[in-house]
Amino acid sequence: MWKDKAMRLLMLSAASTSIFLVALIFIFLVKEAAPFALKPGLDALFDRQWIPVSFVQERYGILPLVTGSALVTGLSMLFTIPLSVLGAIYIAEIASPVEREILKPFIELLASIPSVVLGFFGLVVLAPLIKSLFGLGTGLSALTGALLLTLMAIPTVITLSEDAIMSVPRAYKDASRALGASDLQTIFQVIIPAALPGIIAAIMLGVGRVVGETMAVLMVTGNSALMTWSPLAPVRTMTATIAAEMGEVSFGSLHYQALFWIGLVLLAVTFLLNIIAQRVLVRYGMMK
């Protein structure tokens, strides 16, 4: 029996590492970022310019990076939401069983393509296309990044939305049909409203994925830290900034600390999105 107890303890400690790990991530991000709050103070982060290397005056305003991330994410959602929801409707309600069996793995395939490979494709195929399509000087823009991110968000949002649609009780559908509604009316007036909380949660998780994505945006958004809302302008996201600059900073410098602050902002945003999405799923009984 002692062995039984020992094994339980072993499994328990393994499971506890997750809690431990979350705490460690938070502690180490804060630890590296903290000195910045004392000098020069957190105000410096709200500057409207990000010029971490300068002969005159370094500036660590993360606002242009936040707007960069927001622009790319927003644009990408503009494409992702309609495409994914329609895709999920197709797979769940319209496709034949054989089609389903083929389409689902294909969508999963998209999810398994490494982001650096998508970024590479964006760089050599998509960017030149955007460039000539809009007559730009460079194809590296917020729009290019958003299109790639759409590809990365689609598998998440389609799969989770489809789960939500499939979880709508058959009885709703039958009732609607019995009242003489056509299949399409049933889909848009009964099934989608019933599945809406699940779809919203799916979209939020998709946003979380997109906000945190690094390599694809690093490679195709042009990386200039300007505050702009133009889809065709080059922008720089929070993630790309960390990836591009961390290699060149001296550890412990203000620049280094500022990059960790960006990490903390990312952590907070994705954490909130995740938690709210879970709450929605639990509240509407859509948790598996």
């Binding site: 997750s18 790990l21 979350v22 991530i25 590296e32 945190g212 993630t239 960390i242 960790f260 990312l266």
Partner: peptide, 20 residues
């Protein structure tokens, strides 16, 4: 904790790995 870990962006894992 597991849900939280699943949502942490990969670049943040990078920062964490660097720090720890």
């Amino acid at each position: 904790a597991i849900i939280t870990l699943a949502g942490v962006p990969s670049i943040v894992y990078g920062l964490f790995g660097l720090g720890l």
